[in-house]
Amino acid sequence: MVRKKKFIEQSVYGTGPAEIQAQSHTLSILVDNEPGVLARVIGLFSGRGYNIESLTVAETDDVNNLSRVTVICSGTPMVIEQIKHQLDRLIPIHRVTDLTLEGAHVERELALVKVNSQGEKRIEALRTADVFRARVVDSTHESYVFEVTGSSAKVDAFIDLMRGLGMIDVSRTGVAAMSRGAKAI
């Protein structure tokens, strides 16, 4: 403790800012679909010490060669503002939209869940999947692969239940998001 205090007094950088409650924001980013663009986005987050909670990217407009990146990031309001400005500074980025600030939006995530079980557990897994409107996309005598779609919270809940029912593998897409209403980003 004493050492820490001494460090703070000796450091030319002074003390860090007081802890402020971090918030989560969903950003939708339109980028040129070119090699290295994802590395630029990720590199910016790691290089500046920002937190990524979820990241999804795929080409969405093959005429104009654009991809859409959906990032959920967390930080203080000042950090969130910085993240948006820093992203906007990257040359291949066309537009950064903060869906959390823009108003209502929908967020969806897809997960594939592999369950390996027999007997009662196998039936229970199928029943639970039905409750969550998960579909069976692959089936063998010992296993199922379920496809579940919904909010991240719903996917989390489904995975939690499957854990006790012989779940051996999960693959999640990360969140795709879009604003509600008639406007595009």
Partner: peptide, 29 residues
């Protein structure tokens, strides 16, 4: 920059600040 401001919490405590910059990420950083 930190070499300009010194201790941030005590940096020019009584002023209203106008910041003009070509880089939006510099403002409020």
């Amino acid at each position: 920059d930190d070499r300009v401001t010194g201790k941030l919490s005590a940096f020019s405590p009584h002023s209203k600040k106008i910041h003009i910059d070509i880089d939006p990420s510099s403002i409020n950083k």
